[in-house]
Simulated scan of single mutants.
Amino acid sequence: MIIKSYAKINLSLKVIGLRPDDYHDLQMVMLPLDLFDAIEIEKMPFSPDSFVTCDDIELANLKENLCKKSLEAMRAKYKFKDNFTIRIHKEIPFASGLGGGSSNAAVVMLAVNQMLHLKATNEDLIEVGKTVGADVPFFLVNKPALVEGIGERITPIKVKTQYECLIVKPQQGLSTREVYAISDKFQKARVDTDGVIKGLANGDDTLIAKSLGNDLMLPAESLLPDIGVVYDSLCKDGFTIVSMSGSGSSVFALSRDNHKCHEAAKKYTKQGYIVRHCKILL
């Protein structure tokens, strides 16, 4: 079985506060993208273990892969003995704030549910998924949504316009844990979540641009100043809906102009950035 594992952007990310368990309560508007990894998963009837391989050298030596973690979480819940081989064909950049690892984990859960006829509901999978990673529940839904708590409360939202999305990522990635660890030392952005949601529903680019923001951008930029360089450059290029996704290091611009995104993609690729040009999924 081969399944598409889609990326996401955080159009807005507001840190509400630190929880007693040291996680942060968040309020986010998240949009899925038509940028995807391909996950190939097969049952291995006589294998003593499950194996995960990846064609991205940055991920090949990771000690903890979220696909394996999600598989074992499903095994603990549903008590199956089957083992699998999972091959990840990467297109979503690593350590980019685009949710690649969480998305991969979510589609493994969906595939196992289907292949083993477990008949788990989406609500059941979300309960398992939130033990694997904060973004996993969103990818089990994979629709534009308001996402709250640590990622487990998902409310679908309406989006009128299927925007082009230009993603520009510095070669260096960022650790989510490191960004959150210093985030409380920085001033919060002026994020208007309701404004973002209203702007998306009405196709009001001006309202979206005025309302969006990411409370993690300043701490991420302190670790990797190139984020600010890319952000300023995209704004100078005339893009108005610009922000950083997740904990970085990807910066994105939304636009209705395919040609403008295409030309900008060529420019940033020549400058040595990792670039993806895609669309949001409705």
Rank of each mutant, 00 (worst) to 15 (best):
A7M: 10
K8H: 00
K8Y: 02
K8W: 03
K8N: 01
I9M: 08
I9C: 02
I9R: 00
I9N: 00
N10R: 12
N10F: 05
L11Y: 08
L11W: 11
S12C: 15
S12E: 08
S12L: 11
L13R: 12
L13S: 12
K14F: 10
K14I: 08
K14S: 14
K14Q: 15
V15C: 07
V15M: 10
V15N: 07
I16N: 14
G17Q: 11
L18G: 06
L18N: 09
R19T: 13
R19W: 13
R19G: 10
P20K: 14
P20Y: 06
D21M: 10
D22Y: 13
D22R: 15
Y23P: 07
H24F: 15
H24R: 09
D25P: 02
D25H: 12
D25R: 09
D25E: 14
L26W: 03
L26G: 05
Q27S: 14
Q27T: 14
M28Y: 00
M28W: 00
M28C: 00
V29T: 05
V29R: 00
V29L: 02
V29K: 01
M30G: 01
M30F: 02
M30P: 07
L31M: 02
L31W: 00
L31I: 06
L31T: 03
L31A: 01
P32C: 04
P32V: 01
P32M: 01
L33I: 03
L33V: 04
L33E: 03
D34N: 13
D34F: 05
L35R: 02
L35M: 04
F36M: 09
F36W: 08
D37E: 11
D37L: 06
D37T: 08
